[in-house]
């Protein structure tokens, strides 16, 4: 329960208007810091729901696949430039962001990650690595402004952020493949 408390505190902290404004004022920090932090807050809060409603998770997320699918869909949705733009201009979308990322991404991720098989984990990891590469190229190469609220330079920065993260993921994959080979 302590963990859930920390998660809730983090969520509330991120929702304080000046904090939210600071995070959202720079495109890359909006997507690569605020959004993951919202997911992390949900990841912590998940313990509350898991203890309170064990039957629900048992019934709807038995093998972890529905949860990880929900996570992947919602998280990918928030990587679309337009969704970010709308979060800044349409209050309802901003509220949806603060609900969907913790509760539809963080919570199912926590519940699913320990249920899904290693094979599925690898697929999820590889998919997101490829997605990050693709989005990195998209944001760097796009000749026009993809978001009304952010300048072209912000977009370029985000693109490089995606690419460097994808490179880090690749390094981890290589490291994992080698150490796994050693372990077997």
């Amino acid at each position: 329960m302590t963990q859930a408390g920390y998660g809730l505190a983090l969520l509330l902290f991120l929702a304080i208007p000046p904090i939210a404004h600071l995070f959202e004022s720079i495109m890359i920090i909006h997507m690569h810091m605020q959004m993951p932090l919202l997911v992390i807050s949900g990841f912590f809060i998940a313990t509350f729901f898991q203890k309170r409603y064990p039957g629900f998770f048992e019934k709807w997320n038995e093998d972890g696949i529905p949860g990880i699918l929900l996570f992947s869909i919602v998280f990918s949705y928030w990587m679309i430039p337009r969704t970010m733009d709308e979060a800044l201009t349409v209050p309802a979308v901003e509220v949806f962001k603060f609900i969907s990322l913790p509760f539809l991404c963080g919570v199912p991720l926590r519940d699913s990650w320990f249920k899904i098989s290693l094979f599925v984990k690898k697929i999820v990891f590889a998919t997101f690595t490829l997605l990050f590469f693709a989005l990195g190229v998209l944001y760097i190469k796009a000749p026009v402004q993809l978001c009304n609220n952010y300048l072209l330079i912000d977009q370029l920065t985000l693109g490089w952020g995606f690419l460097t993260m994808a490179i880090c993921f690749m390094i981890f994959i290589v490291y994992y493949v080698f150490t796994e080979k050693e372990a077997t």
Partner: peptide
């Protein structure tokens, strides 16, 4: 698991450096 710590380190480095470096190079 040094491989993991190195990846995390690189992530923190990219978090720290991507914004200013892109700005300094592009502008």
């Amino acid at each position: 698991r040094w491989g993991l710590w190195i990846v995390l380190m690189l992530l923190v480095v990219s978090m720290g450096y991507v914004i200013p470096l892109v700005d300094m190079i592009v502008n």
